[in-house]
Design a binder for these strands. Structure first.
Length: 731
RNA sequence: GCCGCUGUAGCUCAGUGGUAGAGCAGCGCUUUUGUAAAGCGCGGGUCGCAGGUUCAAGUCCUGUCAGCGGCUCCA
């Protein structure tokens, strides 16, 4: 008979199998009332789940009034709310809406569904759906689980004509899908581990009478236990995430333990919008995107250019300390360069199309499209032989080799800087004594991102990487990776960015996609993991996420609405040396292949500045602020002295503006505060007389008092030079 | 690229098929001000673009471009 161990270590024994609810009741009636589900040996189960053996349990409860809902309770409520929303949508739009898949997420839940042709779900339906959801919640119908055998359940689903649910069931049963056909491998079952022998359904109420859904569960006991839920937005998705498969409508919703929490969430979303880099970027005139210039192409306005330039100067100074040398390379390169590196044509969908010489273009006018592509993508015999020999494989297939007179010459806007840097390394001989060679460049690259993916400064089509390539010997890899990470650490510390995540991409040992010797990989992976550990932040090891040419470390941050963006990256590359036939002379007087480390600690200036704008909500530390000081005379009478103050700051190298507009001081303060200027210097007759300035710092709501002009200048200079995060100058 | 939403003055936004509006910003005048918006006045628009329906279109329809949220992808 079951003995149940509670989280505090106490045990309770029962003389017959008991449900989760009965266990809760045996502890207390209040607990039973609040109970939503039960955790059995760490696995969440329905409250009705029957315990018939010795287990350890924990009870998941609704929040007490005024308290936050626990993450486990939120997941249960959201999963349950997904059922309620699906029922509501079918009530509003019709039963012929086919449901596919509806899981909880970090911020709520979604349900993917197929809307029948001729019908349309739009946000106009949200009010009706929300109303119906509230009704279902008010009805407080119980979530009733029942299980049927595969032999019974599958025909039931098939007879209902929903291929998506049939597919879910087949995958849950570990069977090959009879309805999903694709070249893509089938993803892991969405509804549970494969190999179960029965299928579970949940009726929202009574089985056979009320609405029901194939579902693994678990759920809250009844709809009334969902605190508050709302439908949020619409999107499209693909069945199995496969763009060649059916397009589904994804309906997003969210649920919380109480109406108050839901309302607070909505307020937070609203507030986040005010911190959005696109909003701040416009208000503070940091950057502009012009339709006529082109989608995803950033115009850095003077204010934004200052922020970027300061960052670049900062990185440049750090790189100098680490022994980097700077190079400059053009924005385009010949097609042959990218055929050598291997980037063309394999990544052609992500690149701007080739730039073809005028005469060649005229000559091609009579060719068919496929012939043009064949000639553009073709490779000369000489180039192919060289690459195949160096990579010791048929890297360039025979059918891509073409006679020289048919090959189309042309250029590409560079999608990355490495081929150019490889050519610089290869342009002169290197001794092992010179290694590593560290070539750095703020290199601008262009990538053809899908239009729907573009996003302010964080996802663009032209961007400048804080790029560098380290050409080193295999023994130097660990120290070089370590050096890259210490640079990242320095930069993030100065900027006060602590909320980032580190991903270490390792190879999938079962895959042949990864080139190079296993020994080299093991060493490089160990070096990456060691370096990541030294950062002192949490990091995850992700097998299979390495590039095919080597392991990598990525830095990921979240934006104001919770989306993750990859910033910096450090990648080890064993391929590039072969591709470009790079070498250095070793102590044995023989040529050796260098390993290349690609690294961009900020990722790109565009994305990093976008993230930084949100990080500071536009209130940059003084050293980064486009305008560091604003001088504001009380009236025209002190304009002359204000000009003296302004000149003193300007000649000290401080970015200062004089507001001698014909307004009252209250208005000048308001405007400067809105523009997030770090220091306001208010000067009136009193100040002019004593050669002083009255200081007001951003973020403080009052006059801090007066100080001597010279003391202020030297104070702010010190603050800027030290790149202080806080405003420190005080009278 | 896909689904949904949005597009009106420099910015934020109103605008029943019937004469294009407000606030802020800009310019001019008055005011000479001591710490989060002084007053008055004046300019400013192919209502994203292209078609269509209509006596009449910012408003309705079709197409298209761009932005937003999500999906897919991300060397």
């Amino acid at each position: 008979m079951p003995i149940v161990t509670l989280p505090d270590g106490k045990t309770k024994s029962f003389d017959k199998p008991v449900s989760g609810l009965e266990v809760a009741q045996s502890i207390g009636s209040g607990l039973a009332k609040a109970a939503l589900a039960i955790k059995v040996n760490g696995e969440t189960k329905d409250l009705a789940h029957v315990i018939d053996r010795d287990v350890s349990i924990a009870i998941i409860t609704s929040p007490k009034p005024g308290q936050a809902t626990s993450p486990e309770a939120l997941t249960l409520m959201r999963h349950s709310a997904a059922h309620v929303m699906a029922e509501a949508i079918q009530d509003v739009l019709g039963k012929d809406v086919l449901l596919a898949y509806g899981p909880p997420t970090d911020t709520g839940f979604f349900y993917d569904m197929s809307i029948p042709e001729g019908k349309k779900l739009s946000s106009d339906h949200f009010a009706a759906i929300n109303k119906r959801m509230a009704e279902i919640i008010a009805e407080n119908r119980s979530f009733t689980r029942y299980e049927v055998s595969a032999a019974e359940g599958l025909p039931k689903l098939k007879s209902e004509g929903n291929k998506y649910k049939t597919d879910n069931a087949e995958r849950a049963l570990g069977m090959p899908s009879s309805v999903y056909k694709s070249s893509k491998p089938v993803a892991a079952p969405a509804s549970g581990p494969s190999g179960t022998q029965s299928l579970s359904f949940y009726a929202t109420g009574a089985p056979g009478k009320d609405w029901e859904d194939l579902c693994r569960g678990p759920h809250v006991p009844s709809t009334g236990r969902i605190g508050a839920a709302a439908v949020m937005s619409l999107a499209s998705s693909y069945w199995h995430g496969d763009e060649n498969s059916d397009s589904l409508t994804r309906v997003y919703g969210t649920a919380f333990g109480s109406k108050e929490e839901l309302d607070a969430y909505m307020v937070r979303l609203e507030q986040a919008k005010a911190r959005d880099h696109r909003v701040i970027g416009k208000a503070l005139r940091l950057f502009h995107i012009d339709e006529t210039v082109g989608q995803g192409l950033i115009l850095w306005t003077p204010n934004g250019a200052i922020v970027r330039k300061e960052l670049q100067n900062f990185i440049g100074a750090e790189l100098k300390k680490q022994g980097y040398t700077e190079v400059f390379t053009p924005h385009i390169g010949s097609l042959d360069l990218y055929k050598t590196s291997g980037h063309f044509p394999y990544y052609k969908d992500a690149q701007f199309p080739p730039i073809i010489e005028r005469d060649t273009l005229d000559a091609l006018a009579t060719c068919s499209c496929s012939e043009v592509m064949r000639r553009v993508e073709g490779v000369s015999q000489r180039l192919a032989d060289g690459i195949n020999e160096r990579t010791k494989a048929t890297t360039i297939a025979a059918d891509r080799i073409m006679p020289d007179d048919q090959l189309v010459q042309g250029f590409m806007l560079k999608p990355m800087n490495c081929p150019h840097h490889a050519k610089i390394f290869g342009s002169s001989p290197h001794s092992y004594r010179d290694m590593p060679v560290r070539l750095a460049e703020f290199g601008t690259v262009y990538r053809w991102e899908q239009s729907g993916e573009l996003n302010g400064m964080t996802r663009v089509r032209g961007f400048t990487q804080d790029d560098a390539h380290l050409f080193c010997t295999e023994d130097q890899i660990p120290a070089e990776i370590q050096g890259c990470l210490s640079l990242v650490k320095t930069i993030f510390n100065i900027l006060g960015m602590k909320d980032y995540r580190v991903r270490v991409g390792l190879r999938d040992k079962d895959s042949s996609k990864f080139t190079g010797s296993p020994e080299s990989w093991d060493k490089a992976e160990a070096a990456c993991i060691d370096a990541a550990k030294s950062l002192g932040v949490s990091f995850s090891q992700e097998p299979g996420e390495a590039a095919f040419y080597g392991p990598k470390i990525d830095f990921v941050v979240k934006d104001v609405i919770g989306r993750e963006w990859q910033l910096g990256t450090v990648q080890v590359d064993y391929q590039m040396g072969n591709r470009f036939d790079l070498s250095y002379v070793g102590p044995d007087n023989k040529p050796h292949r260098p390993v290349v480390i690609h690294r961009a600690p900020f990722g790109s200036m565009e994305r990093f500045c976008g993230v930084l704008i949100e990080h500071f909500a536009g209130a940059f530390p003084t050293w980064l602020s486009p305008e560091q000081v604003r001088v504001m005379p009380i009236s025209e009478k002190t304009n002359d002295y204000a000009q003296v103050v302004t000149n003193a700051l300007r000649s000290a190298g401080v970015r200062v503006k004089l507001d001698d507009s014909d307004g009252r001081i209250q208005q000048k303060v308001k405007v400067a505060a809105d523009e997030k200027v770090p220091y306001m210097l208010i000067v009136g007759p009193r100040d002019a007389e004593n050669n002083q300035v009255s200081v007001r710092a951003r973020g403080t709501e009052k006059d801090l008092g007066a100080m001597g002009l010279e003391a202020f200048v030297s104070g702010i200079k010190a603050e800027i030079d030290a790149k202080k995060a806080e405003l420190t100058v005080r009278p």
